[in-house]
Nucleic acid binder design. Sequence first.
DNA 1: ATCATGATGTTATAATAAACACAAAATATA
DNA 2: TATATTTTGTGTTTATTATAACATCATGAT
Lengths: 218, 218
Amino acid sequence: MDKDYRTDKENKISITVIRRLPKYYRYLGDLLDKGINRISSQELSKMTGFTASQIRQDLNNFGGFGQQGYGYNVEELHGELGKILGLDSVYNAVIVGAGNLGQAIANYKGFEDAGFKVLSLFDKNPKLIGLRIRDIEIRDVDTMVDFIKENDVEIGIITSPRESAQELAETYIEAGVKGIWNFAPTDLDLPDDMIVENVRLNESLFILSYFLKEKYNR
Amino acid sequence: MDKDYRTDKENKISITVIRRLPKYYRYLGDLLDKGINRISSQELSKMTGFTASQIRQDLNNFGGFGQQGYGYNVEELHGELGKILGLDSVYNAVIVGAGNLGQAIANYKGFEDAGFKVLSLFDKNPKLIGLRIRDIEIRDVDTMVDFIKENDVEIGIITSPRESAQELAETYIEAGVKGIWNFAPTDLDLPDDMIVENVRLNESLFILSYFLKEKYNR
DNA sequence: ATCATGATGTTATAATAAACACAAAATATA
DNA sequence: TATATTTTGTGTTTATTATAACATCATGAT
């Protein structure tokens, strides 16, 4: 523990590094599946498109996982990255907004495999309440706060229309979720220390559009 | 083949700038809706969280849209950004993978409002073929290439499982789409000049997880 | 056991991006 | 009309991020 006298700010790892970690994790998972148990930064570079130097630097932010002259042990590195990303524990989540997008997320087995368990969907539409997606029930949004408190829900997912997103986010916080995964195309105005990850489908599509325009009708 | 005669390095705008444009566009749209017709970089800064200086620099990559002592005309700037992002023309799109996610996108009115028209969904599941989402028919994926060629489809959207994404992307290219919007959690291996925008839901969720772990240390 | 090779961890350098700062130009005011 | 104020556009500086370089050490061949 002799390094930990440093303040949080000094050893805070930049978001640009963190956003590369899932990609490393994914490729390492692929290698594991193929039964490959040894990998060098150079080979990872070819796969991921990042430079070998950058990969080594990125990984070294979290510790020296490799061995000189050998490379990295795939299983070990995959496991370490999983821990760093918090994929070694199970999170309970709920979804508010049980439309197609909410249902798509509830349906997607990949999230559960990664340790994110959707316990319930919530909606205000009476026609949806009571239905089940896989074995996940859609409940009345009015019961959401109680459900979250009773079931140790840590992640609140917002797949509602834009108009209701802010209010629902505040409801989530009131209920005690620790993080919000927001799909509504708006910026939530929440306390600074609240953890929010936005998925901005609109913006992503606009970027695609930008490059189309740049390439084809300048 | 016809490589650009322009030395495209000298006027190429960095992707970090481009990724901010949709946010400017969104806030300007909000201002328009509120009937506000004048805005300064400082006020935009408060709204968007970017610094006023950065906003001015970003916009100046595309031209001097503002006026000293006044600021920016909201309607004009909104329009200009729309043009830059290619939102002034209509794009035809199709979706392959008619599960919940594909249906969610087909259902989302916001994309159509921005000029992206989904003409058809495609799937290989016979139970889905023939169904309609809004007025959009789900067709057999085997008919996709012909459909794309006959209907001037420019954007191919992939909402299939990971395993089939690469093959479907190649099919899209064969059929002549100009850009691919990929939701499958894989890196498509395609010609360098192909325009691809990935939406990585998995990675986004992992980032959320990372910050949860960092903050709560579990 | 020795030595050439390979590959990391880490420091040094380069490239990129963001922030600062201010002249110039327009607006608002009186 | 004169003048104080506002705010852009842009040159300059600082900060951040990425790449290159390399000393070091494990490995594997002989």
